[in-house]
């Protein structure tokens, strides 16, 4: 609730300064295979806003998130990604992360033998170094992450376990948000963070995300379920079909989708497609 009015106000203010992410007619295909997945995505996300992206399976939501984060599997064939006023197309994924882009993966990857703490300390310190912030030594870091554990009510035992290795589906998702809490990104892309979380976990993790979110950052969350949006209230809801955003609206759009499904929008996608 608390963001809705503010962000509408903000849009009327000096836009340039408040836009975190702008996708301009973004086209992307699978590298080397010529399969186009993103077919002209337009999106504007301002500071302090939460955007939800919904859409049927295979419509390109995860691809969109990965392309913004710079996954080498996809090639941008047209359009642009403007982040904090600059195109980031030429930046490596780690450089984008340094600049404050964070992706909570739909399928978090296992890294056997590397503990959560090791990864997070490396991450935190490289990001800190690149932003001219102070790096933390192991002891300071330990204090720092314990606070963050509380935020998502995660058991400290997970710190010494290998990254995601043998984690349950829900544990992996919670771990992603824990990492987000530690790294404090400017733009968080949360890809189906809710799937896999049980009812209590969903509440805890959502609360955590709400606490992390403020005036200076923005969140794009991808979800299939209106339920999540009861916890994390979006300023905008977008529907993606066939590699495009075919409809945008306020949070009520999510209810409409819940009720009607996507069929009624499929035709819209086609019309839009032909119009291009």
């Amino acid at each position: 609730m608390r963001h809705t009015n503010k962000s509408f106000l903000k849009q009327k203010l000096n836009q340039k300064e408040t836009i975190v992410l702008e996708l301009k007619n973004l086209h992307a295909e699978v590298e080397g295979e010529g399969i186009e997945i993103l077919k002209g995505v337009n999106l504007k996300v301002n500071k302090g806003e939460i955007h939800a992206i919904m859409g049927p399976n295979g419509s390109g939501k995860s691809t969109l998130a990965k392309v913004v984060a710079g996954h080498p599997e996809y090639e941008v064939t047209g359009g642009d990604i403007i982040y904090n006023g600059e195109s980031i197309l030429e930046m490596d994924p780690d450089e984008r992360a340094h600049a404050g882009v964070f992706l909570a993966f739909q399928y978090p990857v296992e890294v056997p033998g590397v503990t959560n703490t090791t990864l997070l300390r490396e991450s935190y310190n490289t990001i800190a170094a690149s932003r001219g912030r102070e790096e933390l030594d192991p002891l300071e870091f330990d204090d720092y992450i314990r606070e963050k554990l509380d935020l998502v009510e995660m058991n400290p035992d997970f710190l010494e376990r290998s990254v995601n290795a043998g984690f349950s589906g829900g544990e992996k998702k919670r771990n992603e948000i824990f990492q987000m809490a530690v790294l404090q990104p400017t733009l968080s892309l949360l890809d189906e963070t809710d799937s896999g979380l049980d009812i209590d976990a969903l509440r805890v993790v959502s609360d955590g995300i709400n606490k992390l979110h403020g005036e200076e950052d923005a969140i794009v969350l991808i979800t299939h379920y209106q339920r999540l949006l009861n916890y994390i209230i979006p300023d905008f809801v977008h529907v993606m079909i066939g590699g495009k955003i075919v409809k945008s609206g306020g949070k009520e759009l999510a209810f409409e989708l819940e009720e009607k499904g996507y069929d009624w929008l499929e035709s819209l996608a086609k019309v839009n497609g032909e119009a291009k």
Binding site: D94, H98, V109, G113, E122, T126
Partner: peptide, 28 residues
């Protein structure tokens, strides 16, 4: 995998450091 490397890169770790981290984990 490319996905493992991308995951670590997404967390701000360079490609070479990512490989080194993965390999060190493997040999721990």
């Amino acid at each position: 995998g490319e996905d493992q490397i991308f995951y670590l890169q997404q967390r701000g770790i360079s490609e070479d450091d990512a490989i080194s981290l993965i390999v060190n984990g493997f040999c721990k």
